[in-house]
Structure formats: structure tokens, C-alpha cells
Amino acid sequence: MKGYKDSVIPPLISDFTPLQGFCISEKGSGSKKSGINESSATDTILKERGRREKMSDKYSVLRSMVPNLFTISKPTREKIVHDTVNYIKCLEEEIKRLEGIKKLQVQEPKAAKPVLSRFANQKSSVDVTVSSGATFFAIRFPFKPDIITKIVKVFDKHHAEVLVATVSVDEQQLLTFTVTIVLGSEGGNTIQKIKEEIVALEVVF
């Protein structure tokens, strides 16, 4: 072309210089984002681990409070919860039973003074004391063969529950037999019958 010169076209710029103050660093941004995600995941794992440890401790506490779980080496959590619920129900029933007993005790009149009864002659005596549901017999007879066996048979005949009994014979061959017994609901009538039958033994001998 006429009048064309190469020097008119400016040379190409080989190095590209980005605008001042503008910088793109995808590598740095990606690393920072990855670090945040890893930290968040670690926190989540630690929190979950802590939650499981707390739950495990609570199940261990429940197991230690339920008697029938002691015999099981590794009960499942379902088993622990099931037996705990049943145990709580049993405790609630026991509370109701004890409260019922307490109400009955409050309604009952105050305990009366001990009731005393006595039979005595020159050689023998039978003292009876009734107090707080228990009956105390103090029997004194001249010692004779089989007398102790016969006295015991009288108590056994009337289904008396013997709590304490003592037997002794002194130098004058006087037998002392003391016994504390508990009777059923008809204790008053039974006590009188026992006393009469024991006194009859003294007459026989």
C-alpha cells in the first residue's frame, strides 16, 4: 500500500498487567473455604460423640437403679428402658400400699395399757400380759414329767407363733416357763382358752 509503514503500528504488549487493586486468587479462596468445612465437620463429630457419651452414662445410671438388670451382663437399651418403666410402676404400687397402711394406723385408736390376767394358788400361778399385739405368759408349776411338753402342745393347738421362750427349774423343783406369742385376729378369745387349758394341766398333775 502506498504510504504504509510498519512503524506506524505500535508493537504488541507482551506482558498483561491487571488493573491496579484488582486481584483474583481462586486457589487461596478455595483453601479458605475447604478449611472452614473441615473445622465445621470436626465440631459436628465432637458434639455427636459427646452426646452419645452422655446418653451412655444415663443408661448406665438407669441400669444401676433397677435390681433385675444386675444379673444381665450387657442389656440392650430397649431392655433397660422397659425394665425401668416396670420398676417405677412397682414402686408406685408399693407407695400406695404403704400409704394405705399408714392411714389405717392413724385411724386406729391409741394403744391401750397392757391387759393383765392372773391365776394363782399355793403351788402354781399363770400370769398373762397382753400388749401391742403380743402376749406374754409366765407359768409356774411344780415340776413333773412331761409338763413342758403338755404346755407346748397347748400353744401349738391354738396356732400360736412363739417369739421367745425360756424354761428353768429351781432347787425346790418349781418349774418357771415364760413365753411370748403372737396370735391371729381372734386373739382375745384364744388367749383365754390357752390360759384355761394351761390351768387345767396344773389341776390334772
Results as ranks from 00 to 15, higher is better:
P109C: 04
G30W: 14
C90D: 01
S73R: 14
K150P: 07
V115H: 09
G28V: 03
Q105N: 05
S29M: 08
P75L: 11
V167N: 00
T17E: 02
G28S: 05
K47D: 10
E48R: 09
Q192K: 09
T17R: 03
V128R: 08
R140E: 12
S34A: 15
G188D: 02
G21N: 11
D146C: 04
L104H: 00
G30P: 02
N86R: 03
T149S: 03
V81W: 00
G3R: 04
T129Y: 03
K32M: 05
L69T: 14
T176Y: 06
S132L: 14
V154A: 10
E26I: 15
T76L: 08
L163W: 14
I139G: 09
S64C: 10
V179C: 06
V167M: 00
K32H: 10
V115L: 14
G50I: 11
I24P: 00
L62C: 12
K47F: 02
K89P: 00
L12N: 07
Y4A: 11
P114E: 13
K58M: 06
P18T: 09
S34I: 13
L46C: 03
P142V: 13
I72Y: 01
A111R: 12
I147H: 03
N189A: 06
Q20L: 05
I191F: 05
T166H: 02
R77N: 11
A111L: 13
I24F: 01
K144E: 06
